[in-house]
Amino acid sequence: MPDLIRGRIGGVAGQIGSIAVTLFGLLILTFVIGRVMPTDPVRAIVGEDATREVYETVYRQLGLDRPMWEQFFVYLKDVATLDFGTSIRTGQPVLNDILYVLPATIELATFAIIFGAGLGIPLGVMAAVHKDRWPDHLIRVFSLSGHSMPIFWTGMIALLVFYAQLGWVGGSGRMSQFYIGLVPEKTNFLLIDSVLAKEWDVFRSALNHIVLPASLLGYSSSAYITRMTRSFMLDQLGQEYVTTARVKGLSNRQTIWRHAFGNIRVQLVTIIALAYGALLEGAVLIETVFAWPGFGQYLTSNLLIGDMNAVMTCVLVVGVIFIALNILSDLLYRIFDPRTR
């Protein structure tokens, strides 16, 4: 069917086009952020005591005397060649910094979202099925407390109980001090690197350290996932096809999981992708409490001292993450809902 194939190609082309436009808009945004922020990039490099001549030289070296559009093209070229400049705070190329902190956060956020969805979806379904009866109320209390307790506080309490008192899990950092530097950093995903190096003790230590912060983050995002699942599910349970399934003689459980659940997957993908994106950009509190060298911490500390190269790149990374998550959700929609094919 050539028509169908042409339709597919058209769809893919349209999607690539819209991604390109979004990326371009994002680049304009980060560029503008770099120019309008009330920090002086030259001062940041030369220091407070530099003479006027030194200041002028650096000013020209940075290309700040050229017209705005020319500066923007230089910026585009830099981004295209993955040259994001040097961070003033760490003295390292920003790219290297990001390649170190981002995997740490991805690891944490991935575990957290698996935990959050694994907890939130069944609880939400259960709350919908038992609407306004005691399981619903119990689940509401459980998920609201996860949502409303400040995570830095639960983080410290959890460290105190599960690490200091009970000793079930590892403390702060990505692994025990003892193992630092033992595993060659290939991907910077510690769990993957340790498997690649066949260092099982390091793997176990890393797992031990990620469990607590990931489950706390997961618990707090499960609150949102639970509430949304409940409302999506209530919507579906009122639909006629659910009655059809009951008329066919399917039990409650079969009706819910074989029929109603399939119809909330698309909506679930949307909110889980958003929750995952939020975890990737902003787990700064939990990263601080657990001394986790992650992206949230990196972004926040650079923002506070006005390290513009790093901040611009972080904003770009967050944007790219959300674009990627959108593409992923679009793909999943197509798998889950025949009407979108």
């Binding site: 639909q239 096809y241 059809t244 399934a245 029929h259 119809n263 809902d337 025949p338 009407r339």
Partner: peptide
């Protein structure tokens, strides 16, 4: 339109 499950 409503009594058949849309995704099966």
């Amino acid at each position: 339109k409503y009594s058949l499950n849309p995704i099966q």
